[in-house]
């Protein structure tokens, strides 16, 4: 198996799906001639041409809405928001249209659109370009929200997203593009809405996803040196949210820490903790801990920004607090 970056895995998934289905096309800002601002679609414009790799104006409302319309009328658009921060401008197209047209017209239309959006903090981009707003989108039924942490998951999930008849928001944490992992040559799919155990252990359950998962895994390596074996569950999809593996693990370890890059208030951790106590109250031996971003707009200055973000030390501290 080849060890490739998550960026390459996403590129490969897009390319394979475009070769498989001529109704799959890409639209977004600088996806074509430029090759994608994160270089995910480099070479696509030459390979597939301007008809299938469409550069748009910098106009997120119509990127979002036109992708919805094209999807309703039989195409499979992969619409890229240059960053998820700009998807705020398309919130109406995503929430009021992509996520609603199937239901509100009684099932007459379907909307097989994929919105791709890099996001996340930690790159000194300042307050408006550093959001991890995944939970905002995951709030709404009708939309599927996926955010992978590994190259293997990214490729298999993106292919499933493109083939899905439902609208999918595919969030790529930008600091993960360089993460390498094993990806098989042969084709495979990973179903949306299935969590995955990334590390087994019996002392504590860590529930995480995306960049939070990588932070959690770093923490577990250090914890292991002290003889603490954590089990790590990767949610992979936020909606539908598969709580099965997390609950099973919690029933074994009786303790849980939830790690997410977004804000703590009203966050993924709040949701997962609530569900754990609803489903496994009798197994709870300690308060469920949340490791999340400080409740501040992210600043530019490097040290200051890092101090607001999650890191392995915070995860380790949270684990030790409840052991």
């Amino acid at each position: 198996m080849a060890r490739i970056t998550m960026r390459q895995a996403i590129t490969d998934a897009l390319r394979e799906e475009m070769l498989r289905d001529e109704n799959v096309f890409i639209m977004g800002e600088e996806v074509g001639v430029w090759g994608g601002t994160y270089a995910v679609t480099r070479g696509f414009y030459d390979e597939f041409g301007p008809q299938r790799v469409k550069d748009t104006p910098i106009a997120e409302m119509v990127i979002g809405g036109a992708a919805v319309g094209a999807a309703m009328n039989g195409l499979r658009p992969v619409a890229e928001f240059m960053t998820i921060n700009f998807a705020f401008l398309a919130l109406d197209a995503i929430v009021n249209h992509a996520a609603k047209v199937h239901y509100m017209f009684g099932g007459q239309f379907k909307c097989p659109v994929v919105f791709r959006a890099p996001g996340g903090g930690g790159r000194q981009l300042g307050a408006t370009h550093s959001h991890t707003p995944d939970v905002i989108f995951a709030h709404f039924p009708g939309l599927k929200v996926v955010s992978p942490a590994t190259p293997y998951d990214a490729k298999g999930l993106l292919k499933s997203a493109i083939r899905s008849d439902d609208p999918v928001l595919f969030i790529e944490h930008a600091t993960l593009y360089q993460v390498r992992g094993e990806v098989p040559e042969e084709e495979y799919l990973i179903p949306i809405g299935v969590s995955d155990v990334k590390r087994t252990g019996s002392d504590v359950t860590i529930v995480a996803y995306a960049q939070g998962l990588q932070v959690a895994l770093e923490a577990t390596n250090e914890l292991a040196k002290e003889g603490i074996e954590a089990e790590v569950v990767d949610l992979r999809s936020l909606r539908p949210l598969d709580m099965g593996p997390a609950i099973t693990s919690f029933k074994k370890t009786f303790k849980a820490v939830i790690v997410e890059e977004g804000y703590r208030s009203f966050g993924i951790g709040a949701e997962v903790a609530a569900r754990l106590q609803e489903e496994a109250f009798d197994y709870m031996d300690a308060p469920i801990k949340r490791v999340a971003q400080m409740e501040v707009p992210l600043p530019y200055s490097r040290e200051l920004e890092q101090s607001a973000l999650i890191n392995k030390d915070r995860v380790i501290a949270a684990v030790k607090e409840i052991l």
Binding site: V62, A67, G69, A70, M72, L75, A93, H97
Partner: peptide, 11 residues
């Protein structure tokens, strides 16, 4: 809200 949808249907 439906104007971009119209553009997409036309696309």
């Amino acid at each position: 809200g439906h104007l971009p949808l119209a553009a997409g249907i036309a696309l």
